[in-house]
Amino acid sequence: MFIMLIYSLIAVVISSLFPLLAFILAKNYLYDREKTTPFECGFDPNKKARTPFSLRFFLVTILFLIFDVEIALLLPLVLLMNYAKPLTILGLSFSMTMILVLGLIHEWNQGALAWVS
């Protein structure tokens, strides 16, 4: 009974201490103009809305999404090891990875990944 009282007291102290510390140590963003402005993909919100969009930024974003989806498709293959032959899973993952690597090499050779042209 005494131990439960001590644990309850510790829980109450910690649960009231953390919000108090967060309130005391929090930064005041009212006077920081840069922190209160919206940030939209590197665009300045105070400029014209119809500025030209960087095609290179778009391309790098699409490449990131493609490789992100590849990881999302390769991760469940580990779970399939129990239901299929490991050699089949290995071949499938290797072929998926090689298609993407060959596509990346093609993009590199075409100069699409070069920031300075």
Rank of each mutant, 00 (worst) to 15 (best):
residue 7 Y to S: 12
residue 94 F to H: 02
residue 20 L to S: 13
residue 62 I to M: 09
residue 45 P to V: 03
residue 8 S to V: 00
residue 36 T to W: 02
residue 41 C to H: 15
residue 60 V to T: 06
residue 92 L to S: 12
residue 91 G to T: 07
residue 79 L to T: 04
residue 96 M to R: 02
residue 60 V to S: 07
residue 91 G to M: 11
residue 76 P to D: 06
residue 43 F to M: 07
residue 58 F to C: 07
residue 117 S to C: 00
residue 84 A to Q: 12
residue 3 I to R: 11
residue 2 F to Q: 12
residue 4 M to C: 07
residue 20 L to P: 03
residue 17 L to S: 14
residue 55 L to Q: 08
residue 115 W to F: 08
residue 103 G to D: 02
residue 48 K to W: 11
residue 95 S to V: 10
residue 19 P to M: 08
residue 36 T to R: 15
residue 5 L to W: 10
residue 103 G to E: 01
residue 59 L to N: 11
residue 53 F to Y: 13
residue 12 V to P: 00
residue 66 I to K: 04
residue 86 P to W: 15
residue 8 S to H: 10
residue 94 F to R: 00
residue 33 R to L: 08
residue 105 I to V: 13
residue 100 L to P: 02
residue 5 L to C: 00
residue 7 Y to K: 09
residue 51 T to Q: 15
residue 64 F to V: 02
residue 83 Y to D: 15
residue 31 Y to L: 10
residue 104 L to E: 02
residue 25 L to E: 04
residue 83 Y to Q: 13
residue 19 P to R: 05
residue 97 T to G: 00
residue 64 F to N: 03
residue 48 K to I: 05
residue 4 M to W: 04
residue 61 T to V: 06
residue 107 E to V: 04
residue 21 L to V: 07
residue 71 I to H: 04
residue 92 L to E: 14
residue 102 L to T: 00
residue 30 L to Q: 14
residue 56 R to G: 05
residue 96 M to Q: 06
residue 27 K to Q: 12
residue 98 M to T: 07
residue 44 D to R: 07
residue 38 P to S: 02
residue 61 T to F: 14
residue 17 L to V: 14
residue 104 L to N: 01
residue 4 M to A: 13
residue 10 I to P: 07
residue 73 L to T: 09
residue 26 A to R: 14
residue 64 F to M: 06
residue 105 I to F: 07
residue 14 I to V: 15
residue 16 S to E: 13
residue 67 F to H: 08
residue 53 F to I: 13
residue 13 V to W: 15
residue 63 L to T: 02
residue 98 M to H: 00
residue 81 M to E: 14
residue 41 C to A: 14
residue 33 R to E: 14
residue 117 S to A: 00
residue 44 D to T: 05
residue 51 T to S: 11
residue 3 I to V: 07
residue 77 L to P: 01
residue 52 P to H: 06
residue 18 F to N: 10
residue 8 S to A: 13
residue 106 H to P: 01
residue 2 F to C: 00
residue 38 P to F: 01
residue 32 D to C: 06
residue 69 V to N: 02
residue 88 T to E: 12
residue 70 E to I: 02
residue 42 G to H: 05
residue 57 F to L: 09
residue 7 Y to I: 08
residue 11 A to I: 02
residue 103 G to T: 03
residue 32 D to A: 07
residue 49 A to E: 10
